[in-house]
Structures are given as C-alpha cells and as structure tokens.
Design a protein around this nucleic acid. Structure first.
Lengths: 210, 210
DNA sequence: GCAGATATTGACCATTTGGTCAATAGAATC
DNA sequence: GATTCTATTGACCAAATGGTCAATATCTGC
C-alpha cells in the first residue's frame, strides 16, 4: 500500500530533537489526550523510530508528566498576561471566570481530566498535577487577595476561596467535556456563585458596559 | 511459593455466577478504580478463570460501563432516601451539598473521574456516564424546583442551577482526590456559593441548630 | 447408576504497551 | 579521502490486555 514506510529521520542536534519530540507529545496530548501519548504514537508524530523517543526520554511516565506541565503552564501564563491588562480585582475576577469557562480550552480540560486519572498510577505525573494546581490556585488567590486588600471582596480566607473557585471551574469544564452542547449560562451563574462567596451584590461580577 | 494456584470454582447457576462477577467488578472499582477492572483482575477477585468472565460478559467495555452504573446509581439512591427524610427544600439542599462534599465517598469520586477519562474510548461507558449525570442532575433539580415553588429559592432556571451545582461539587471532589489533606471549609464556602446562585441571604444554608 | 446438559477451564492467539541494545548511517574533523 | 563521533534504527524482549474454543468436570434428570 503506497509508502507506509517512514524515511530515515534527518539528523538533528540532541537539543533540536528533544524539542521536536516534546512538541510531538504536546500536540498529541492536545488533540487526543494524555493517554494517547504513547511511545509509538509520539514517535510516529515526530517522524522518528520508537527507539529514538525512548532514547531521548528517561521514561514515558516522565514524558507524560512533562507534557502535562507544558500544556498547563502555557495556559496559566496566558491567563496571567490577560489579567495583567485589566484595571482592578473585580474586573480581573470576572474575566478570569468567564475566560476559563468560555469553552475554548476543551483540549486543555481533557488533559486535566486524564491527568487526574493517570496520576493515580504515575507518581511523577501526580506530583506535577499538584504543582500546577498550586500555580493555578496562586493566580486566583492573588486576584482575590488584591480584591480584599482593596476592600472590594469580603472573605477571611482568600486561599480557601481560591481553591474552591478552582475546583468549581475544573468541575464545570470537565462536565462540559462529557455533556452534549448547551454550555449556555455557565458564565453568569458561576458569577453569582462567586458573588456569594465574596459577599458581593448580585450582578457585581457581570460583564461591564460592553 | 505456597499455593498461588486457584482451586476449581464451585459450580453455580448462571444468575449466581453473573452476580458474583458483577460484585467482584464493583468492589474492584471502588478499591482501585475503574481502570483496574480488567478481565484477569475481575476473574482473580471472583476466584474464577479469566475465560469465565469473558464467557459471562459481552465485552469488558460493557462490564466496565455496568460497573460504573452500579456504583453510581447506588450512590444516587442513597442520597435520595436521605433527602426524603428531611423537611423542606432548604434543609435538603444544605444536607445535599454537605453530604456530597463530606469526603466519605472518595472511592465513588475516583470512579467518576476515571469514567470521564475512559469514556472517551468506551462509548458504552460514555452513554452510561451521561445517563447517570442526568439522574444526579434530576435529583438536584427536583430539590431546587421545590424550593422555587415554595418561594424559598429564587432562580429562573432550576435545571441550569442544578447542572451548575453538580459540576461544582464534582470538581471539588475530584480536586480533593488529588490534593493533600486539608478538606476543611469546603462545606460552608460552597454553601455561600449556592446562596449566591439562588438569591439567598448569607448563611441561609448553614447547618441548622445542631 | 447412567447419560445428557452445561458450568468451568487451560491453552491459545493477536494486539499494544514500555523498553534495551548492537548495528548502521551520516556528518564533522583531521 | 580516511577516520572518528554519534544520531538513528531494526530487531528484539517481557508484560499485560481482551478474546476464542475445544476439552473437562460436575450437576441433574432419567
């Protein structure tokens, strides 16, 4: 059947090849989930013999953990720069919630959900999951903390609220991954929920003017 | 090494054997997760040859889906009877949230999380996941609907609020599965969140008297 | 007790997984 | 142009997965 046989891969420097493999793993994870990041699948996508992937990575467990970290830390960084451009904590929190729930990151959500499951049998991945959760929680906590300092939010425990909010949006995203269409009112409803947690008036977090 | 060899399993009626296998799969799922429900693992736990499991089940995919349904529907039934014993919607909602989040069902949570992940490669399981999500949502929606009818809750879309609440608690439970200890304030915080969604005063859902 | 029905099993098979290692090919250096 | 270095590969391996099927053991009805 035509040429299902792979050409010999052009020689690269170790750094280049390592990057190429990491990128292959990353795109594979985003398109088909972390469980699709197997030795052979990564090799095929990178256009390379399976043995080469094994050669460049200590074990598949750590490649999966690194891939997870790569995907998620990029998302965190993206959100952070987005928030930096906004005026105050209230605007930031509103945008934060709406952005996370806007459904445009289902691929990342899939990576999260599979990481929770795979983490039970891959301790390296589990550690990375905890680290990235901490990073996420930190971003949210900073916003909430700033809001409390500015007298805009009311809570005695910004850290706990941040964890709570993180869990909520994770759950809603995971749910959206499984359920049919209908991702309608997620934004406004959770805004009301957050208002409840932070002692805000109803609608205080709704999208401003625009 | 002693006797790692299995005795021949005592003969049973098909109904009995099928039940025995289902129970083995169920306990395995609760102890080690859905991904541990493999042909050989189930056979070992049931004290039976692997071929017998294959004989009694159309495929592992459906055994896994049935096991998921068994675990989750039992939980739904348990909660329903718990709610029936309570006076009104507000008490029911408060207990509902606190009970789901009390951390005593981590085994079921693990089954949920793995079902989300495995469902992407097991359509039978995916269908069952959606069905059980609908069941859960129905229970919650009934409580909220009753509360709205009684003038205790304020929302225009009980169904949406129910979905939202379900997603939130799922996420918080999944998070607790991964994070270290510290499952502290989950109850009261989410109560405030729900109060925000349903237009209740702060503290309206806190545990009564007791 | 004997014969038939059937619950159960061992022996296979194909596939997929992660991983190892000596051999090979290709670029850089002398 | 020959030699050295090394990126890359094919050929393996062990383990685990789901699944099939003829053979066997055991119970039931006659």
């Amino acid at each position: 059947m035509s040429t299902p046989t792979r050409q010999r891969a052009p020689r690269m420097s170790p750094a280049e090849r390592a990057l190429s493999i990491a990128n292959a793993a990353r795109s594979l994870a985003l398109e088909e989930g972390l469980s699709a990041v197997t030795l052979r699948a990564v090799a095929a996508r990178a256009g390379v013999a399976p043995a080469l992937v094994a050669h460049y990575v200590p074990s598949m467990d750590v490649l999966i953990a690194r891939t997870f970290a790569s995907v998620v830390s990029a998302e965190v960084a993206e959100i952070e720069t987005l928030l930096d451009a906004l005026p105050g904590p209230r605007a930031q929190l509103g945008v934060l919630v709406r952005t996370i729930l806007d459904g445009s990151r289902d691929d990342v959500t899939l990576v999260w959900v599979e990481a929770w499951a795979l983490g039970r049998r891959n301790e390296t991945l589990a550690a990375e999951v905890r680290a990235q959760m901490d990073a996420w929680q930190g971003v949210i906590q900073d916003v909430i903390g700033a809001g409390v300092a500015a007298g805009e939010f009311e809570t005695e425990d910004p850290a706990a609220v941040a964890w709570q909010l993180l869990g909520m949006v994770d759950g809603l995203n995971a749910q959206a991954l499984v359920r049919w269409g209908d991702t309608s009112d997620r934004g406004s409803l959770i805004s009301h929920a957050v208002e409840g947690m932070l002692g805000l008036d109803r609608g205080a977090l709704d999208a401003p003017g625009a």
